[in-house]
Write a protein that binds this DNA or RNA. Structure first.
Lengths: 139, 139
DNA sequence: TGGTATAGTTACCAGATGGAGACTAAGCAG
DNA sequence: CTGCTTAGTCTCCATCTGGTAACTATACCA
């Protein structure tokens, strides 16, 4: 992989690495997995039970991606039936705080979001136009 | 944000509201739109140009969802051709910091992630098993 | 007469996503 | 001999996603 050093990392550019890295963690399950691994190692089946609603397939997929990105460590014990333990790498642990900030935000603003949604849904089609229609034709 | 009360709302439950709120902002474009609106209002076309790679359809969709969730305000000026201005609501502005934290993380750990990826891809199929195979049959 | 501008909406369609369920290994309990 | 265990993988298939292109309104400009 050509490590092109981006002196000015413009996150608004599609090919910007920092944007690509951001997308790695901005998905459905990754934040939850990080949070679940906060307290140490966990086996696959434990994660599956802990994270309600995730399927076996998605958990595997998410963990593989996180492992590839250096966020989690995967340790396989060659026994039968298999034992596999997952834990956050030091890099993954640095994500713990940012993810927690997001979760705390979500919790703190539950009602505001819910209220905004019902308001929006009731308003439905009402225009809400600006009274300052002083703006005219462009150019 | 020293008050972390993750006790009552269990984010690991699928029906938990805080989880649903979290999913609202954990998508491809929402963080970028928030960041783009940091400095004030922006017109639709300006956002479209600023956020490289987003399509008209996705931008509309993202903005509508954000408006419904109370994150952005949409002001329509009834002129022809249309003028529509978007800006962050006070609620949306409280998301600015969490989103920035994520972006800074992404920038700060670019190389580590990239390095982890190449290492993983080269290792490919090598097992990397635990030497402590002392674990035996369960139950 | 026709082209241009903005902020969408709609229809169409290929490709991605993701769930369900079957299948596997190796050893042990019954 | 059967069934149970775990951590997946694999196939099948329905749904979702998202891009592209065409279309709209109204006023202005050449």
């Amino acid at each position: 992989m050509e490590t092109k050093q981006q002196t000015s990392p413009d996150i608004f550019q599609a090919n910007c690495l920092s944007r690509q890295v951001l997308q790695l963690i901005a998905d459905q399950w990754t934040p939850l997995v990080i949070y679940a691994l906060e307290d140490g190692t966990m086996r696959f089946s434990h994660l599956l039970k802990r994270i309600d609603g995730i399927s076996k397939k998605m958990l595997t997929q998410t963990l593989r991606a996180m492992e590839r990105n250096g966020l989690v460590q995967r340790v396989v014990y060659p026994v039968v039936p298999p034992v596999v333990e997952y834990s956050l790498t030091p890099l993954g642990q640095t994500l713990l705080e940012p993810v927690k900030v997001l979760q705390i935000w979500a919790y703190d603003h539950l009602q505001e979001v819910a209220h905004a949604q019902t308001t929006y849904d009731q308003r439905d089609q009402r225009p809400l136009q600006a009274e300052t229609a002083s703006l005219v034709q462009q150019r």
